[in-house]
Design a protein around this nucleic acid. Structure first.
Length: 647
RNA sequence: GCUGUUGUAGCUCAGGGGUAGAGCACUUCCUUGGUAAGGAAGAGGUCGUGAGUUCAAUUCUCAUCAACAGCUCCA
């Protein structure tokens, strides 16, 4: 007998060779019907695999992340089965579950093209196959057999995958008439898949390489019942309503113009006010933390970027140099502020007592982004970084780095960004050719980041190959309405630029030393930050940021004079208020202010004018009753000072 | 840049081989109304751009530009 330890600590005894599904059945039939896969000694496997030794066991169902993942991966196989049935000769690439939910399969349809109608047909076929409750059968195969199978099938993609695998590690899974190369795990049978939705078709390069053939990727998602699918679709609809591109237009925050150029946002008055609020907020925090403001031009001589190394790395993929008409001098639109700041550092000799020097600038930069990359405000060609560069002594690096983490966390906290991941972006483990600088410096920098993040107790993930070409980064990633991840705050340790610019300070020993540079931007860029902010708050900005805080709604033009008086009082208290003096009914004025997501509305009529009161209405909440003007001002001021969220 | 989808009024969208329509917004007039849409009239578009097919193209075909989804990229 073997001992099976369950998550609650209970230990049960079974015959060797028992499966997770058998164990589930021994607990309850109901549970057994829900088991999708199992975690045995920390490894997720088929619920039907035999367990032969003492083990810990967690039964995975739809409520577990890994359970969902198993279901979706099996759904990808089900889709592949349907595709083979509908389109004989289709070649299959890979078909995994996706982290954010659902699955895809990359396929080569040859000369065939498919569209939306085809997706519906495939869904029908999948449903038909699912109903057969075909069992997913696992089989270990030798490399030779695996190669032979897919050679007969003439599937070069699978053959390529098998070539990269070791003999002995290869398994096939078969359900119904379909067999795929797969390491598993899978759900017990296709009958678990009750609701299917294929969402979209897109192109994807084989193995993610631009030089390879582009395959057709079909995305889908499945659920154990129709209700959950419907809920999921509703949720997607809701998310689309929070899209910053849609809200940016509706709330008149920003716009784009083809004539101005792609990816070059135009900030409208309300958006500009929001932006300025954020800038002032961060400027204040930076002033308090010993940063010094600097201002640098939007272009810099090409030589500046040759020195920094950016020209060699990105010169070809940048806006090309602009030249003077007579002398043929060459300048680049600045794609980053660091080189300029290095030259500011160099403007005067530095003593070790001067360090750290913290130079801050809201620097607008221009980068050539591939056409297909442009995306609302999150990926643009002209944007403003809340940039700063800290020049410090090696012994100050960690302390400074930690202070920067604190600043980023302060910013995130002030804006209620609680759901972020701190990503430690290091060099690619194999390919180091794309990085500049010595191994020694890289190791120092990577070490500094890892230690600082650990000391701050950040919840981190390490990503190899995500470092900048000159140094490792600590990136703060936040998701948008649709769950796509974006990098906002970033902190980078850099030993390279100080060398390239020959930055120095005189140490206590009266000798020259090289400072270390820290790049940091808590927002990342104002554009991207605001985009994510809009989606997070669904356009309902906290009062301290709201472009218009109060809309004054006189009931008729008899109350116009009183409305103006109230507006004046609010203005004196630095409250951003507007009067809606149109000859419209109060109901309509309220409706429009509600839709514009204005936090507070003041309904002013003859009653209020007589008693010197304001009737307050809160967006989405309704009538709050009347109060003294002074009390209303206090209410607003308190909410602004404490940076309360909208609720 | 690549694959696919889309492109009609300021916005959201309908239509369709015989040179265009709705709602909202806008302008004017009437209305002075108490917590999510008062009424009337008016103005507004060479149907993304260019070419081809046709007696005739906004509609069909091709190219091109842009947006969207994904891929690749992201100093």
């Amino acid at each position: 007998m073997i001992n099976i330890t369950l998550p609650d600590g209970a230990v049960r005894q079974y015959e060797p060779g028992v499966s997770a599904l058998d164990i589930a059945k021994s607990i309850s039939e109901g549970l057994a019907r829900k088991v999708l896969s199992a975690k045995v000694n920390g490894e997720v496997i088929d619920a039907t695999r035999p367990i032969t030794t003492d083990s810990t066991l967690q039964l995975l169902t739809w409520s577990d992340k890994e359970g969902k993942s198993t279901m979706w991966h099996s759904s990808a196989h089900l889709m592949a089965e349907a595709l083979e049935a509908l389109y004989p000769g289709v070649k299959l690439g890979i078909g995994p579950a996706i982290e954010g939910g659902g699955f895809y399969y990359d396929i080569d349809l040859g000369d065939r093209q498919i569209g939306e109608e085809d997706l519906r047909k495939i869904e029908v076929k999948m449903n038909e196959l699912a109903k057969q409750s075909s069992v997913y059968v696992r089989k270990e195969v030798s490399k030779a057999d695996a190669l032979q199978y897919f050679t007969e099938k003439q599937d070069q993609y699978k053959l390529e995958l098998i070539e990269g695998l070791n003999d002995g590690d290869i398994t096939f899974y078969t359900q119904g008439g379909f067999t795929d190369l797969c390491k598993g795990p899978h759900i017990p049978n296709t009958g678990f898949i009750k609701a299917i939705k294929l969402t979209n078709i897109a192109g994807a390069y084989w193995r993610g390489n631009e030089k390879n053939k582009m395959l057709t990727r079909i995305y889908g998602i499945t659920f154990p019942n129709q209700k959950e699918l419907d809920e999921h679709l509703t949720l997607l609809e809701e998310a689309k309503k929070r899209d910053h591109r849609k809200l940016g237009k509706e709330l008149e925050l920003f716009t784009f113009s083809e004539k101005v150029g792609l990816g070059l946002p135009l900030w409208l008055p309300k958006g500009a006010m929001l932006r300025e609020r954020l800038q002032q907020f961060l400027q204040k925090a930076q002033m308090d933390s010993g940063y010094l403001p600097v201002v640098t031009p939007h272009i810099g001589s090409k030589q500046l970027y040759v020195t920094s190394g950016h020209y060699e790395k990105y010169g070809k993929d940048s806006f090309q140099p602009i030249s003077t008409p007579e002398e043929g001098e060459e300048f680049l639109l600045k794609p980053m502020n660091c080189p300029h700041h290095c030259e500011i550092y160099k403007a005067s000799p530095k003593s070790y007592k001067d360090l750290p020097v913290r130079l801050a600038e809201f620097g607008t930069v221009y980068r050539y982004e591939q056409h297909g990359e442009l995306h609302g405000l999150t990926r643009v060609r002209g944007f403003t970084q809340d940039d700063a560069h800290l020049f410090c002594r090696p012994d100050q690096v960690k302390e400074e780095f930690i202070k920067v983490i604190d600043l980023v966390l302060y910013v995130f906290k002030s804006l209620n960004f609680t759901d972020y991941t701190a990503q430690i972006s290091l060099r690619d483990k194999e390919d180091r050719s794309k990085y500049i600088g010595t191994d020694e410096n890289w190791n120092l920098a990577e070490q500094a980041i890892i230690e600082s993040a650990r000391e701050k107790g950040l919840n981190t993930v390490v990503e190899y190959g995500e470092a900048a070409f000159y140094g490792p980064k600590l990136d703060f990633m936040v998701k948008d309405a649709l769950g796509r991840k974006w990098q906002l705050g970033t902190i980078q340790v850099d030993y390279n630029l100080p060398e390239r610019f020959e930055l120095e300070y005189i140490g206590a020993d009266n000798a020259k030393h090289r400072p270390v540079m820290i790049h940091r931007a808590p927002f990342g860029s104002l554009e991207r930050f605001i985009a994510v902010l809009i989606e997070h708050v669904a356009g309902k900005f906290p009062l301290w940021l709201a472009p218009t805080q109060v809309k004054i709604l006189p009931i008729s033009d008899k109350s116009q004079a009183y409305a103006e008086k109230v507006a004046e009082l609010l203005k004196n208290s630095e409250i951003r208020a507007e009067i809606d003096d149109r000859s419209e009914k109060i109901g309509k004025k309220i409706r429009e202010a509600e839709l514009a997501k204005i936090p507070y509305m003041l309904v002013l009529g003859e009653k209020e004018a007589t008693d010197n009161l304001v009737a307050v209405r809160r967006q989405a909440k309704g009538d709050l009753g009347t109060m003294e003007i002074k009390n209303f001002i206090d209410l607003i001021t308190d909410e602004v000072i404490n940076r309360k969220p909208f609720e």
